[in-house]
Amino acid sequence: MWREISRIGKKLVDTGLVESHFGNISVRIGSRMLITRSGSALDEISEDSVVEVGLDRTCALDIIASSEAVVHRAIYSNTPALAIVHAHCPFAVTMSLLCRNGAIEPVDSEGQYFLGDIPVVRGGIGSSELAGNISLALASHRAAIIHSHGTFAIGRVLDEAYVMTTQVEHSCKIKYWYDLARNR
C-alpha cells in the first residue's frame, strides 16, 4: 500500500498541488490507518515514509506520524472515507483567503456537478478544532478547504481523493480568473 501512497504523492508534487514536504496522505485499513510521516517529501515516499497507527486513539507512533494524524482520525470516524489526500493547492488557498461566506461556489460546470459548494473551514494545523470542523464538512462533501492552509479530499481509494483534490484546485483556478476578469 505504501507504493500507492508514493504514487499519489509524486503526482501531487509533479502537478504543483503541493510543495515536496507539505501535505499528507492516508489510507484506512480496518481499525488502523497508514499515514505519511511528519516531514516526508511526498515525491520521495518509501516504505519508511509511512507509519501505521490506530484510528480510535493516539499511540506512541503518533510522534513520527503526520502532524495532521488527529484530523485524519476524525475524518475516518465521521465519514465513509477509506482514503484521504491533504494538499496545499495554491489556488484553493488563495480562494480561501478571499472567501467571505464560508464556501466557494464553483463557476465551472464540472465543479458545480462534482463538488457543489466547497466548504471553507477554520482551525489550526493538527488541532482538535480543525479535526472537528473538517470532518463535519466532509460528512456531506467530498472535499473542503482549510482557510489559508489547503485542501482535504476523501475517497474510497486514493485515486478518487486525488481526483477530488485536482477538481477543487481546477474550480478555484477558474473562479479566480473569472472573478479577476469580471472585476476589471
Rank of each mutant, 00 (worst) to 15 (best):
M1G: 14
R3Y: 06
S6R: 11
R7M: 07
R7N: 06
V13W: 10
L17P: 02
L17Q: 01
V18D: 14
E19A: 14
S20P: 12
H21L: 15
I25Q: 03
S26V: 09
S26C: 09
R32Q: 12
R32C: 06
T36N: 02
S38K: 14
L42D: 00
E44P: 00
E47I: 00
D48S: 13
V50K: 11
D62Q: 04
I63W: 01
I64R: 12
A65Y: 03
S66L: 05
S66Q: 08
S66N: 03
S67H: 13
E68D: 15
H72Y: 06
H72E: 04
H72P: 01
Y76K: 08
N78S: 07
N78K: 13
T79I: 04
A81L: 05
F91T: 01
F91V: 00
L98Y: 08
N101P: 02
N101I: 04
I104D: 08
I104M: 10
P106S: 04
S109G: 01
S109Y: 11
E110H: 13
Q112M: 14
F114T: 07
F114A: 10
F114C: 09
L115G: 07
G116L: 02
D117S: 14
D117Q: 13
I118S: 06
I118R: 01
V121Q: 09
G123A: 09
I125Y: 15
L130W: 06
N133T: 04
A137K: 09
L138M: 10
A139H: 14
S140N: 14
R142G: 15
A144F: 05
I146H: 03
T151N: 10
F152C: 06
I154P: 06
I154G: 03
I154Q: 03
G155A: 12
G155F: 15
V157H: 09
D159W: 15
Y162V: 04
Y162E: 00
V163D: 11
M164C: 11
S171I: 05
S171R: 04
K173G: 05
I174G: 00
I174F: 05
Y176R: 10
W177P: 00
L180D: 00
L180Q: 01
R182T: 04
R182F: 08
R184E: 08
